[in-house]
């Protein structure tokens, strides 16, 4: 144990090769992993691809670019973008306060950050709706002011902010914990103000983590269904998200149309997954560079 000190934990390759011969169970675990992965994930996902290929190109294009579907893309991606941006600011603030300051009940607050991961989305949806509807705790004060937060696109954004909050906090927090105080001390000694130290020294170190958190929150928001449908009002062209379009088409037995829209969403998820992987690699190389 003691000799492994690299962050990645990769011993020299010769050691690995020797270990492959010593430790048993490679074939059976890899075989089971591949079998289970294929049965649960790969084969069902390929069904989506095959179903899409049964459509002709004009059919596919018509299904994914009808006005109602286009409106849903605008709402889904626009609301996800706004929500993920809010999450970056709020998440950085929460992570900063949790890492740098101490206050009573900090451990409880820290644990509570993960609530959106643990709370079923349907519960989040109905409780946010109950709060923001015209007769709710918050809604009753906003409605006289002419502000409506439920049953329109505003509600979608709020539900997505709730869902995405932990991502930014949990990606930024460990990086913030590992930043070296010495750098900040040096900056202060050289005459930097606190704000300069933050923007020129701390911010560049946490930027990759912030972007990773943003991308994760965005990716989650794009696919989110449970919490949104209760609060959105689900009016076609106005507050109907793309996952709901898929459900709607399925309920009308329009399997081909549902599949076409699902394929678009799946491709976008893949692109986002690649972006997140790339960002994480960048972040790792950044932190590895810091420690050396």
């Amino acid at each position: 144990m003691t000799s492994i000190a690299l962050p990645s934990g990769t011993p020299p390759s010769s050691g690995r090769r020797r270990s492959a011969r010593v430790l048993p169970g490679f074939n059976i675990t890899l075989g089971y992993t591949l079998l289970y992965l294929s049965l649960i994930v790969l084969i069902p996902l390929s069904a989506l691809a095959f179903k899409t290929f049964t459509l002709t190109w004009p059919q596919f294009w018509e299904a994914v670019t009808s006005p109602r579907v286009l409106a849903s893309y605008r709402l889904t991606f626009g609301a996800s973008l706004i929500a993920a941006s809010v999450n970056v600011v709020a998440g950085l603030l929460v992570a900063w306060v949790l890492v740098r300051y101490s206050f009573p009940g900090k451990k409880i607050v820290d644990a509570l950050v993960d609530l959106p991961f643990a709370l079923p989305t349907a519960v989040a949806g109905i409780s946010l709706t109950a709060l923001l509807a015209g007769n709710g705790w918050i809604g009753q004060y906003l409605e006289p002011l002419g502000i409506q937060l439920a049953f329109n696109p505003n509600g979608v954004v709020i539900a997505l902010i709730f869902i995405g909050l932990p991502f930014v906090v949990r990606t930024v927090q460990p990086v913030l914990e590992d930043t070296e105080k010495e750098l900040e001390e040096a900056a202060t000694c050289l005459g930097a103000t606190r704000w300069q130290t933050f923007s020129k020294v701390i911010f560049p170190t946490i930027l990759p983590a912030l972007l990773t958190g943003f991308a994760m929150a965005f990716a989650r928001a794009v696919g989110e269904y449970g919490s949104v449908i209760f609060i959105a009002g689900n009016m076609p062209m106005v507050s109907e998200i793309t996952p709901l379009i898929i459900i709607g088409k399925l309920e009308q037995y329009d399997y081909a149309g549902a599949t076409a829209v699902a394929t678009v969403m799946l491709v976008i998820s893949f692109v986002l997954l690649l972006v997140i992987n790339g960002l994480q690699t960048w972040q790792r190389s950044r932190t590895a560079g810091n420690t050396q």
Partner: peptide, 28 residues
């Protein structure tokens, strides 16, 4: 392989349901 294992996280839950309908559904 590690990326493939992460894949279900990035698939929308609705799409996840849909793929099983496409495999096991009446028209699947």
């Amino acid at each position: 392989l590690t990326t493939l294992i992460d894949l279900p996280f990035s698939v929308s839950p609705v799409v996840a349901g849909l793929i099983y309908v496409l495999v096991f559904g009446a028209q699947g």
